[in-house]
Design a protein around this nucleic acid. Structure first.
Lengths: 240, 240
DNA sequence: AGCGAACTGGGTACAGTGTTCGCAATAACG
DNA sequence: CGTTATTGCGAACACTGTACCCAGTTCGCT
């Protein structure tokens, strides 16, 4: 159990007042890393790579950040800046619906975000501002704080889980280096095995009858269907 | 875009008929990897480490598996064997509730599982059997397949997301090498900053008033609260 | 004005990673 | 009894995160 003698990232001043001015900023680091992750996936984000993208020496990065983990934290916070000006409709129901859709969009735009956000609680300024904004949808409701948390917690768990499911396809294909079509073909090879084995009658019926899995917009429709259910469930538990 | 000339894992016969019998099985590999991941986290699962745990030479593993990714796939499937004999109550509502709780338990017992399951669709025998069983909760209902998928999809998205949230604490502490208490203390340092800045009034109110976040069983209660809402939402969309 | 402390940039080095290649030993098939 | 498929495994390669060091820069204080 080593003694971590560094103060947490967001409480550390970005740089001292004494020496030479740093050539870059935390934000620069975050943006460089995000550029790489968006284009080539989270695995491509290495200290050497980020430093190169930044035009700096590899170990100079450790002037801005104490571990690679903190680079990911910077990324996770910075990306929420995209939601800074997104308008939230008034009324809890429309507000929550908008929040869910916005979160999903960000998650799909930056496929590495769910992975990064899943493992850590981010306390950067953009994250805090976003959380403040999500709470504002209950402003005119005189609700207990625990009920707000339950509603928001349920909603974001659903969104996070759904986005992760959506990305499974896409990212699995990318990781394996195959095109999406090639990958779909590989996956399809399992079909006959499942149906011919005779051990999975219900699953087989679903594979034959179900319509949604074959639709091009299946993910959108699946998300909206789930969102409707979650919102209905939240409504059912709200004191009215 | 390299040509992946191997057939997919579960369609490949476990071993040929010609040469010497293999010293281990796929299952052995999975169990060894699971042992390591449970004890030291997913990062500790390296090919060398798994081979050592198995008492085999490092590169011998590639006789059982074509990439490390397939080791993770074996792990993800094997762990579902734990649910093989878990009883599911009849009736869709109790059935789904039991499914959610079982999935959560497995996810918390094996903290690496969500990470593994998030990035890939697993088609191993245990996964298929489990999916077949989840579908069986609708057996006496005469429901359309698309509605079953919507219900199950919403439910598992919620469970996956919630478990990931639960693990964020625990795993972040473990990754940083701190004890949970030490880590909580570090996280707590952010509190004053948030409250004193004055920029997050709603968030501050929640930190002061909310009761649930301080409770020892907050995760259990949060999960059950979310589960109630999701089930209520599913009920609201079921043709009755 | 001058000096020391604080600070930044970055090279070197180390232990560890996934995976390819080649080769010797083994067991079933024709 | 070959022939051939199959297994175990060591060596090697191109990567990774990061601890340690030192030179150069700039501020604050006397």
């Amino acid at each position: 159990m080593p003694a971590n003698d560094q103060p947490p990232l967001w409480l550390r001043p970005e740089h001292g007042t004494r020496g030479p001015k740093p050539a870059h900023s935390r934000r620069d680091v975050a943006l460089a890393a995000i550029r790489i992750a968006d284009a080539e996936g989270l695995d491509a984000v290495s200290m050497r790579r980020v430093a190169a993208e930044l035009g700096a020496g590899t170990t100079s990065l450790y002037r801005y950040v104490s571990k690679k983990d903190e680079v990911l934290e910077l990324m996770g916070d910075e990306v929420l800046a995209e939601l800074r000006d997104a308008p939230l409709p008034s009324g809890w129901r429309d507000g929550l619906r908008a929040i869910a859709r916005l979160l999903r969009e960000v998650g799909l735009r930056h496929p590495w975000l769910t992975t990064v956000a899943a493992g850590r609680a981010i306390h950067g300024p953009h994250s805090l501002r976003w959380r403040e904004r999500t709470l504002s949808v209950f402003d005119d409701m005189d609700l207990g704080t625990d009920e707000m948390l339950a509603a928001l917690g349920t909603l974001s768990a659903f969104v996070l889980g759904h986005v992760l499911g959506e990305l499974a396809d896409r990212e699995a294909a990318r990781r394996s280096g195959l095109s999406h079509d090639q990958w779909m073909e590989r996956e399809g090879e399992y079909g006959p095995m499942i149906m011919n084995s005779g051990e999975y009658p219900r699953f087989t019926r679903v594979m034959i009858e179900a319509e949604l899995p074959h639709a091009a917009d299946r993910q959108d429709r699946g998300f909206e269907a789930g969102l409707d259910r979650v919102l209905a469930g939240i409504a059912a538990h709200l004191p009215h």
